[in-house]
Design a protein around this nucleic acid. Structure first.
Lengths: 273, 273
DNA sequence: CGTTCCCTTGAGTAGTTTCAATACTTGTGG
DNA sequence: CCACAAGTATTGAAACTACTCAAGGGAACG
């Protein structure tokens, strides 16, 4: 917990006031565990130093097996985490049905809500094997005191998550099952690109068709038919959770996907003209 | 500063890093414009002083007419606001269809995202006449410097909003049209109770059935039938946006409404046992 | 080499959409 | 006060989308 930054003043803006301390740091990658945090999305607004602080918050690592719960609904875990590898999902289970309300990939700060709200209103479950870097709540409290600016990075992260959730609500209102599934893959591809984990010829995920059904709010049987429809339309093939796109452009058009809501670097520059 | 609770120490929590300035303020209600901010929901974690600071941020007031936009999608407004009176909705319009992704009522901090993210990815539109208290981004920047603890109240507010959005996603996956509409009214009633604006025999809103349709992701015609179904089931009658409940308990059960996700005071106490 | 989990397919039912037509409300001007 | 216009609410019918139940096929894993 030693390394506070040189500057912890918060001038004109929680994000932009950086300037001063953008001086160099060690040339090699300083954040082996949190290196993907905010990567590609507003990360340039924070200094290396700020982000290094977050790396220092890490208490330990934890490996989760498929289906293993990181947090249980209603629990007071006392920790949050940054995803290092793999996928997790936010799930709400009730009366036999399961809704997946969010997908988490490396770099995502998860269960941060519990730090403020003290109680989780959903479960976070590993999809396939994953690895997370644990941050204890006590450490965050100190941290927010010492470096409110870097804390802004966490705040920023939760607002980005909220933007994705708004888009999901919008998706539900506008799109049918196969479009929603297409949209989910488009979004994942974009988010994986931010952290340099995307491939142009496949979007690899550990999700079963039942998972896709829970994400898109339809029955597993119908998710299967939606997947079949994408295949038959020549848009892409989903096999064992992996999308092999046949025509990315058409797929994005079909899903009405517009990446603006992810606040990626390129998109930001484009919009702020 | 008489009326803080015995416990307002922010031990491991952003709201607790209090220390310094808990000195007194005027005994009468100090916040004519932001008095509803966080009211009933974690507000006890903040001192009057903190909340008074937020009142101080207000630059001006603005009255919005029905359908008037407070922020336009894609804009850089440079301000955010706290709702004083009336209702607003977050809307995403595209290709002829409109999705309403959130409902804002008095006390809600709106468009705070734009302070961090710099650009709004949705419109915020007044539903009926409303009045908002404007906060300029520049003022927030100073404020975050001077009083990071009170800033935590804003952070807290955005996490509460995110919790509601998660619930909406869950709702979409689990409920049919009439249940969703019932859920929306249950939620509104609970939120209005927090700020002392609820009545036990009616939930008054300015929403048309088309608005309800846009909120619940169905066609206006079907929203009408969903409303009719609630009436015929003896749960409640929706006339001109106002719900006259016939049986609150049954209605909440029908909507599978559980107020925990709103983090109201009572619920919190119940859960943290 | 079978068990298990996942994917696929069919048939009938329920929920939802669209198009279209009809009423009810509210506000406006005559 | 009435007539009218505009917005809002209601209803019907046909088409489509999605659900459930049910059964069968395929791939991975021990």
């Amino acid at each position: 917990m030693t390394l506070q930054t040189t500057s912890n003043s918060f001038n004109a803006n929680i994000v932009t006031l950086v300037q001063e301390d953008a001086h160099a740091q060690t040339p090699q990658e300083p954040c082996p565990r949190t290196g993907n945090f905010l990567l590609g999305r507003l990360r340039e607004k924070f200094s290396r130093n700020d982000l290094g602080c977050i790396e220092e918050l890490i208490d330990s690592e934890r490996v989760l097996q498929d289906e293993e719960k990181f947090v249980e609904i209603g629990s007071h875990s006392g920790v949050c985490a940054i995803v290092m590898d793999g996928f997790l999902v936010h799930a709400a289970e009730e009366a036999g049905s399961r809704s997946i309300t969010a997908i988490r990939i490396p770099g995502d700060l998860i269960d941060f809500d519990s730090f403020i709200l003290k109680r989780s209103d959903h479960s976070i479950i590993s999809a396939g094997r994953s690895r997370v870097a644990i941050i204890r709540h006590e450490c965050i409290a100190d941290f927010l005191n010492k470096d409110p600016r870097a804390a802004g990075a966490m705040w920023c992260s939760s607002l980005l998550d909220a933007a994705i959730q708004r888009k999901w609500i919008e998706m539900f209102g506008r799109l049918d099952a196969s479009q929603r599934i297409a949209h989910i893959y488009c979004e994942l591809q974009a988010r994986l690109e931010f952290i340099g984990k995307a491939s142009s010829h496949a979007v690899r995920t550990p999700f079963t068709q039942t998972d896709l059904a829970d994400m898109s709010g339809v029955s597993p049987v119908h998710a299967n038919r939606a997947v079949a429809k994408l295949r038959e339309s020549g848009l892409g093939q989903i096999r064992r959770g992996t999308l092999y796109p046949d025509d990315w452009t058409a797929l994005e058009r079909y899903a009405q996907f517009d990446s603006g809501y992810l606040y990626g670097q390129a998109a930001l520059n484009r919009m702020s003209a």
